[in-house]
């Protein structure tokens, strides 16, 4: 069990570092979102699951699962809002597109 947890934690940190590398290397904003989404999805899942298998306390497990759930639900929403606002700012000349908030 400990070995599984270590592997997950190490893989999670590796994915976080790769995502950061992508955030520094990729050329424009719309590509950098993909790199940030690596940290948001795989880094979070692997690190939190790695912590999850370390403990037997039911309350701690519930809290870790709740954190994972919140991150999975709110992460895509924030990323979508960010990219949507950026794309609106780009075509700012069309005034009616600003009122269609999805």
């Amino acid at each position: 069990m400990i070995v599984i947890s270590w592997v997950m934690l190490l893989l999670g940190s590796a994915f976080c570092l790769i995502g950061t590398l992508g955030l520094m290397r990729l050329p424009d904003f719309y590509s950098r979102v993909h790199a940030a989404s690596i940290i948001d999805s795989m880094g979070t899942i692997l690190v939190l699951l790695g912590l999850l298998v370390q403990t037997q306390d039911i309350l701690v497990i519930a809290k870790l699962i709740l954190i994972l759930l919140f991150m999975m639900l709110t992460g895509p929403t924030a990323v979508h809002a960010l990219a949507h606002t950026a794309s609106l700012k780009e075509k700012d000349s069309e005034p009616d597109s600003a009122s269609q908030l999805s």
Partner: peptide, 15 residues
């Protein structure tokens, strides 16, 4: 985007 990801990193760090 970087601040948002920074927040994710902080959550992992606190845990």
């Amino acid at each position: 985007l970087a601040v948002n990801t920074f927040g994710t990193a902080i959550v992992l760090l606190i845990a």
